[in-house]
Design a protein around this nucleic acid. Structure first.
Length: 308
DNA sequence: AATCGACCTGACGTG
DNA sequence: GTTACCAGGTCGATA
């Protein structure tokens, strides 16, 4: 079967796939390179996507339905939030912060993905006190055990992210525990049950309509979701782009480069959490969460080069 | 309200 | 080659 290549017009300065797909926002993208042919393969919106980037467009294949290029372009455009002019924002953030300006030249085109709410809730429950490689494996297992098969591609089988009701089944906790999810097995199963009990789809729809503070509180009624994970979901799935999730890494960067007066602690306290968020919102404005993601990405070890 | 220790796991890294 | 601590926090108990 030969799959069509579609094309989405998009300048390279507006979107950098490496920093965006491999920056720890989504755990479902894999980079492959064969004979100089660079591709990203991943899953979102119940489709498998193969992406290639050129200077002025994204070339892509889609598996999972038969639809028009226009239809798929809209899905991609929404996922990458291409309606926002990132060059313009980078100029603005650079003018406000010389540290950002320095990072921006190498880390152009890093976008906040607009990700599926359910996928993000359960992916980020897996993320707490955990490392990226294990989180990735856990998310893959959730899809494999409880999602729908989409297609097979290059010796791999791809699955959609599960619906909440399948994660709410009584057996889920013990299955996941056996699969190495540890104490997060219970959080996943319990949170799914709570969402179902509180109205399922309606609970999720309401979440999307609420203002930031209320969304965050509502998310924190689930198990395994504290302030940081709730903020990740608010930022990446609910469109609250001023939200800044403060993890240990962000705290280290903030203390090192921006707020040397912060006390040295091994965990982020509520006060430190608030102080850091306020500082960056003051600095960058209403899209502070997006700006912070770029900075954080620039400091990730896997993107470090000798120039930094 | 703020602080502290326990917590599953190991696809990894460091000493 | 092992051991110990850590990794994109959260939960429940405690002066």
């Amino acid at each position: 079967m030969k799959q069509t290549w579609f094309k989405l017009i998009c300048q390279k300065e507006q979107l950098q796939l490496l920093g965006t797909l491999n920056g720890g926002q989504s755990f479902r993208w894999k980079f492959t390179e064969a004979e100089g042919d660079k591709k990203w393969i991943g899953v979102f919106s119940d489709h498998v996507w193969v992406l290639k980037q050129t200077d002025d467009c994204i070339l892509y294949q889609v598996y999972g339905s038969e639809n028009s290029e226009d239809f798929y372009n809209k899905l991609l455009s929404n996922y990458f939030q291409l309606n926002l002019d990132l060059k313009e924002k980078f100029a603005e953030w650079s003018s406000k912060d010389p540290i950002f300006e320095k990072a921006a030249s190498q880390f152009y085109g890093i976008r906040i993905l607009k990700q599926d709410l359910v996928e993000n809730i359960f992916s980020f429950i897996c993320s707490s006190n955990n490392n990226i490689s294990r989180i990735t494996g856990m998310v893959e297992k959730l899809a494999k055990f409880y999602g729908e098969k989409i297609c097979e591609l290059e010796d791999q089988t791809y699955y959609s992210f599960p619906k909440i009701d399948s994660l709410a089944d009584d057996k889920v906790e013990s299955v996941l525990k056996k699969e190495g999810f540890g104490y997060r097995a219970k959080y996943i199963n319990q949170s799914a049950k709570i969402i179902m009990q509180e109205g399922g789809e309606k609970w999720l729809d309401d979440l999307k309509k609420l203002p930031y503070e209320e969304s965050k509180s509502k998310l924190m009624t689930l198990t395994g979701i504290g302030p940081k994970v709730a903020d990740c979901i608010c930022l990446m799935s609910l469109g609250h782009l001023g939200t800044i999730p403060i993890d240990t890494h962000v705290y280290q960067i903030a203390r090192k480069f921006y707020m040397p007066h912060l006390p040295k602690r091994k965990t982020v306290t509520a006060k430190i959490y608030k102080d850091i968020g306020d500082h960056f919102r003051e600095l960058y404005g209403p899209l502070a969460g997006w700006a912070h993601t770029v900075l954080f990405c620039a400091d990730l070890k896997k993107f470090q080069t000798d120039e930094n």
